[in-house]
């Protein structure tokens, strides 16, 4: 194993909260506020880790397993993503399906943990989460399928390896796939057109409402897993949008990190300029993502 393969997982573990900080800073800048420091997410996680957890007597081991297994699954998924010229530590044929369904496992456990508490609000959040992710999943898989077919490789590493052989065909496909992955990024990470991360009204929340009964280190794990998930989708988007390589390792990594910061700012801009969609309109947005991904597949197959 090459030492450079560990660069991306370590960077992700270290910088995922920073990305959330950049998103918050961008939103604050749009609102004309100073906003929380960029490092605030680290402090929040640190504070939560030093608290004790409170468990309701009605809950079982599922509530405790949810955040821990989520974190483990997300870290595993991160290990499959190549990043800016560095190879992924884990790579095998078909790992893109494992990648997609590791997030499915995360979702299942978080939903099970939410249902385990017996709270009706959490049940509503769980129901929404499952509904929307059922529509986001075909978009992600179709986009990955288009890219895999184009690159002629059944693994994420090969698919994002930056093979821009025939730009006349590949650039439109890359753009379409990026649009689909971008919408999935917003939907899966509870960002604004789908869910408002800042809302505190249980009736409208999706992700936040599912962790209402999670506290202390468990909340830190769930939050950290969510941040890493956001990093993973953003890294996937960057891999699709910035397929060019200079060949120099540090330059490639720096380029990818700059692109990640750009994605974070982009999320902030979307959150500041758009209103949350009504819940009935969210499936249409996700269907648009599916349509983009299907168009990409059709273009590749043609």
């Amino acid at each position: 194993m090459d030492a450079t393969q560990l660069i991306h997982p370590l960077l992700a573990l270290a910088l995922a909260p920073l990305m959330a900080g950049i998103v918050n800073k961008t939103k604050s800048a749009f609102a004309g506020r100073n906003g929380p420091p960029v490092l605030q997410p680290y402090r929040d996680l640190w504070r939560l880790l030093h608290k004790g957890a409170v468990y309701s007597r009605t809950t079982s081991w599922i509530l405790r397993a949810g955040p821990i297994v989520s974190l483990a699954a997300v870290v595993t998924a991160l290990a499959m993503l190549p990043f800016g010229g560095t190879a992924a530590p884990l790579s095998f044929a078909g790992d893109l399906i494992v990648f997609a369904y590791l997030f499915g496992l995360v979702r299942f456990l978080m939903v099970a943990a939410a249902l385990d508490t017996g709270s009706s609000f959490e049940g509503m959040g769980a129901s929404r989460e499952v509904t929307f992710s059922a529509l986001a999943e075909p978009a992600l898989l179709l986009a990955l399928a288009a890219l895999a077919r184009m690159a002629g490789s059944p693994s994420l590493s090969g698919l994002l390896a930056g093979a821009v052989a025939n730009p006349a065909v590949s650039i439109p496909v890359l753009l379409l796939a990026a649009a689909a992955v971008g919408i999935v990024l917003l939907a899966e990470n509870a960002r604004i057109p789908v869910d408002d991360p800042n809302t505190h009204l249980e009736l409208t929340m999706i992700h936040e409402v599912m962790i209402l009964d999670t506290s202390g280190p468990d909340l830190a794990f769930a939050g950290y897993a969510a941040l890493l998930k956001q990093w993973a989708f953003a890294a996937l988007l960057v891999g699709v949008l910035v397929p060019w390589r200079t060949g120099v390792l540090w330059a490639d990594v720096a380029l990818a990190l700059a692109a990640m910061a750009a994605v974070a700012v982009g999320i902030g801009v979307v959150e500041s300029t758009m209103a949350r969609l009504r819940l009935v309109r969210v499936p249409q947005l996700l269907l648009a993502a599916v349509a983009c991904a299907a168009l990409a597949v059709v273009l590749v197959l043609r």
Partner: peptide, 24 residues
Amino acid sequence: MDFWVNCLVVLIAMTNLRLLGSSR
């Protein structure tokens, strides 16, 4: 040139999808 034509054509296809999906 072919590249730009393809990009424009894909954009046109996407405006069609927006036309189908937009509610306003």
